[in-house]
Nucleic acid binder design. Structure first.
Lengths: 194, 194
DNA sequence: ACACGATTTCTAGCAATGCTAGTTATTCGG
DNA sequence: CCGAATAACTAGCATTGCTAGAAATCGTGT
């Protein structure tokens, strides 16, 4: 079965190449520039090859998004573990989330803005996405005994800050101050409760 | 100049008809269904007529959005004036915002998600948009002496709740509880400050 | 070494999209 | 009632996602 194995391996490599190329092109020129023709040209295959790997363009975006979840989870984990005090940890996680969104806007868009038919908050949720959300929950837990609902609201705030900022709907300059305000809101209320 | 006036009037009517039709079609079948051909057919004119009124499809979406700002401002004003106590007023405004987003998702999408080249937070900002934001500021003012930054964060949270909900990224059932949590977070912190 | 069968890959094309050039129809002033 | 200006339409372009059918490639058995 060696030759079949090799084929399988090559196919997997090409799969990854397509996903990585789509991500890079989107990051460089936006998702509008990611056309099947352009993508095919970049991976040096013809268009139909894309359709032998994915059900369509949506599936490619979805694959990019799912890979992104792992990246985000890693960033959040790293941020949280780098701070020992709960308030600082929460601040670090929120900062890391928005930094991720700002530095990799196309990837973020695939994950949280474009319609990608991925189950959120269910059993079928990709593990990396669960892990990323779990980091947020973990950062909020010290301030709330039942942190899930609060995490959803904080996540919504972070997401709002990310997309409104990117869309030019809120100014760029005070973003750090907004994070501080959001974090202080949680930690102060948490202190009360404690 | 009567005949010119009549023509001008008819043109304005057709302008409004196009915008209203685009909005209704988007609300009924989503923005993907709003194609220039479909829209032209619905207003019973040929495609090029659309381009004599608007610079392109983007401009039509923009026109829909700008009309929407007035609606949203009215809803928020009504919600705020219906409550006498600041905490209830804030709750009412936040509830009204999310109700607007949930009940008119396509309109909301045009206003706050699609790229529409409208200046936010500047002198060129449409007055109705300023008014809508002003209602939010007004509802938060009792809890913060410098409410602008906090309003941006609250708005981001509301926007996040709206779009994550609509995208199926947070579950539908606990949305009211999320609003309560968000509002209590503001009003309790405000009481502290007072 | 070579031809056959299966799999992979490509060329060519479809329908739909936003948008526009150039022609036809309409309308109004003299 | 004619001619000029205005308005509206038909037809078409380039681009999009996607696919059918031909061509090429590859592994296998003799």
């Amino acid at each position: 079965m060696s030759i079949a194995a090799r084929r399988h391996r090559e196919r997997a490599q090409r799969h990854d190449l397509i996903v990585a190329t789509a991500r890079d092109l989107a990051e460089a020129e936006g998702w509008d520039a990611v056309t099947t023709r352009r993508l095919a040209q970049l991976v040096e295959y013809s268009q139909p090859v894309l359709y032998s790997h994915f059900d369509g363009k949506d599936a490619i975006v979805r694959a990019v998004a799912i890979e992104g979840f792992a990246d985000l989870a890693a960033q959040l984990t790293h941020a949280r573990s780098g701070a020992d005090e709960p308030g600082l940890a929460l601040r670090a996680v929120c900062g890391a989330y928005l930094a991720f969104a700002a530095e990799r806007p196309a990837l973020y868009e695939a994950m949280f803005v474009l319609p990608i038919d991925v189950k959120f908050a269910s059993e079928e949720t990709p593990p990396d996405l669960k892990a990323a959300f779990g980091e947020l929950v973990g950062a909020i837990k010290p301030f709330d005994a039942h942190p899930e609902l609060r995490t959803e609201v904080v996540w919504a705030a972070l997401h709002g800050l990310a997309v409104l900022r990117r869309g030019g709907r809120i100014p760029a300059d005070a973003q750090e101050a907004r994070i501080d305000l959001l974090v202080s809101q949680i930690s102060e209320a948490g202190s009360l409760r404690a």
